[in-house]
């Protein structure tokens, strides 16, 4: 596949993230809100890492910093050893919380939007766009507008749009947040099989601990007020993972441990 070829031309260390001493205060009319305090961690290339924690603990804020969409008050982010500022569209792709599709564009034109911005020709865009839609199981929906799709389909379009950028780092903010448990796990399974082919670095924000453990190599547990990391839990379950793994004792043990960590803070 052309996607893999593109990935292989890059060195194996591509997609390494190092976050050091990142703090962020939002300025509001009522004064400062400390959203992130002294966040440091590193994500080796090709790892799937989840961020979990209670609402308001700064998961989205951290993701925005990683995406280069927000400059932190203090600290820095390194990508492959280089300090970054601003978005890095050639390496980092973001799948936003609420899909963020352009409502006046069909699925196909939404998916190929990043290519259009780079000046890729129409025929090339269309071909890659159709491929990306096929990967997320939406081949038959290329001509549909966002409002003609279900919430889950919209999120799949957003994932396809992120994948078309062939990012070495994929940032996802609760991409399956609006879905029921069943569909959510189905999507998780699909995402894993896609990721098995690409093996880029993924930072995945979620509230759902089963999803976090099922998908990840590592789960970063955060606490609120101010937003900080309280523990990094390694998930050493074998891959590829079938959905049945969620019922094994090892899995439940990990999941419960993370749940207790969140509860104790």
């Amino acid at each position: 596949m052309s996607g893999n070829a593109a990935m292989e031309t890059k060195s194996t260390s591509v997609g390494t993230i190092e976050v050091s001493g990142v703090s962020h205060d939002y300025q509001t009319t009522k004064g400062k809100v400390a959203a992130l305090e002294d966040i440091s961690f590193s994500a080796p290339a090709g790892k799937f890492i989840s961020l979990v924690g209670p609402s308001g603990c700064g998961k989205s804020s951290l993701l925005m910093v990683l995406a280069g969409l927000m400059t932190p008050t203090r600290g820095q982010v390194r990508l492959d050893g280089r300090v970054t500022s601003g978005p890095q569209p050639d390496q980092v792709a973001v799948a936003f919380q609420d899909a963020c599709l352009l409502p006046w564009r069909s699925s196909l034109d939404n998916v190929s939007f990043p290519l259009e911005l780079r000046g890729v020709s129409r025929s090339e865009r269309e071909e890659q766009g159709r491929q990306a839609l096929a990967k997320v199981g939406l081949s038959g929906f290329a001509d549909r507008y966002p409002r003609e799709l279900s919430g889950g389909m919209r999120q799949r379009v957003a994932v396809a749009r992120a994948l078309i950028q062939r990012p070495s780092v994929l940032l996802m903010d609760e991409p399956f947040g609006a879905l029921d448990e069943q569909t959510r796990m189905d999507m998780g399974e699909e995402l894993l099989s896609l990721w098995d082919e690409i093996r880029n670095t993924v930072i995945f924000v979620t509230h759902n601990l089963t999803e976090a453990v099922y998908l990840s190599d590592e789960v970063i547990v955060m606490a609120a007020g101010p937003g900080r990391i309280i523990e990094r839990v390694t998930v050493d379950l074998p891959r590829p993972r079938a959905i049945e793994i969620t019922e094994t004792e090892e899995f439940l043990h990990l999941r419960n441990r993370i749940w207790r960590l969140i509860r104790s803070h």
Binding site: L69, P89, V94, F96, C100, P114, L117
Partner: peptide
């Protein structure tokens, strides 16, 4: 949110 999405994909101001 749409503007932020476009920005993250490297859209120029004109785009």
């Amino acid at each position: 949110n749409l503007l932020q999405m476009a920005r993250s994909q490297g859209a120029s101001r004109a785009q």
